[in-house]
């Protein structure tokens, strides 16, 4: 556990003990007999366990999943979308997609080819001004995606693989140091792209009507309904400012090339 934290969080500034913290989280052993023959780990949020314990081997993935849970359940000054977000040249691509669509794999490839990582999991769009707030944390990869990205970028730093989790085999890729340094730089969304990995498919970027994109992004939001009219307005402003596409791909290099050629719409600021 400490090895993975040391490896993947080495570039983050440490908060002082007296600094304000939004959440206090910890990992501990549950008080049960399994501690002695099949040890488990328990995630605590402000001292309360929101989940059942997992096998001790899954401690680091549990920390990452727990941190995502903390944010997705408590950060309501932002419209939150289940999406990867990357940025280049001051414009961000939001990639909403369900698990298994290749979102995190594509995100990992992009951030290893010059795009800034905002998040591989949560797009945080401020209700106050529509800007995207970065949340650069380790990129969660699973199953075949782990070795695909290892081969794609041999210098990428990974936590060790953890097998037999609820998501299969998982490993986390360290966020680029530059993305961590720029963690307070908010950015304007310029594209909403729904990625879909399809074996053997030719890379294809297909324009999507903005109204349809609105409904699909809302379907991928954690708190659109909770935010009420503010959620609707924030979403409408995001879609207004964005070009929207469906994107099918099978080769990462093709995807990088297509993303590199994206141009924001003329009215984007």
């Amino acid at each position: 556990m400490s090895e993975s934290v040391g490896l993947l969080y080495a570039d983050y500034p440490l908060a002082e003990q007296t600094d304000f913290a939004d959440f206090h989280v910890s990992l501990t052993y549950p008080r049960n007999l399994r501690r002695w023959f099949k040890p488990q780990v328990l995630f605590l949020f402000d001292g309360y366990p929101p989940f059942k314990p997992l096998p001790l081997d899954q401690a680091f993935p549990m920390l990452e999943w727990g941190l995502n849970w903390c944010i997705s359940n408590h950060v309501n000054h932002c419209l939150m979308i289940h999406a990867a977000v990357v940025e280049k040249g001051g414009y961000a691509v939001i990639m909403p997609a369900p698990p298994g669509s290749g979102k995190s794999t594509l995100c990992a490839a992009l951030v290893n080819r010059g795009w800034r990582l905002l998040s591989d999991e949560l797009a945080l769009i401020r209700v106050s001004d529509g800007k995207l707030t970065p949340l650069p944390r380790p990129v969660s990869l699973k199953n075949e995606s782990i070795d695909i990205i290892r081969r794609y970028e041999p210098s990428a730093i990974f936590s060790r693989k953890v097998a037999d989790t609820i998501k299969g085999t998982v490993a986390h890729m360290k966020a680029p140091a530059d993305s961590i340094t720029r963690a307070t730089e908010v950015v304007q969304g310029a594209w909403v792209i729904f990625p879909k990995y399809q074996a053997g498919a030719k890379a294809c970027l297909e324009a999507l009507p903005q109204s349809r994109a609105f409904m699909r992004v809302a379907d991928n939001s954690f708190n659109y309904s909770l935010l009420g009219l503010n959620g609707f307005k924030t979403m409408a402003n995001l879609i207004d400012a964005s070009l929207c596409y469906d994107f099918t791909y099978s080769k990462l290099d093709d995807a990088i090339e297509i993303f590199g050629a994206l141009k924001p719409q003329a009215s984007s600021k």
Binding site: P209, Q210, S211, R212, F214, M215, G228, L229, F232
Partner: peptide, 18 residues
């Protein structure tokens, strides 16, 4: 609205319609 399609948000129900 975008083009020929409208998104309607009903703040009474919280529902969004295309």
């Amino acid at each position: 609205s975008w083009g020929d399609e409208f998104i309607v948000y009903n703040s009474l129900s919280g529902d969004t319609h295309l």
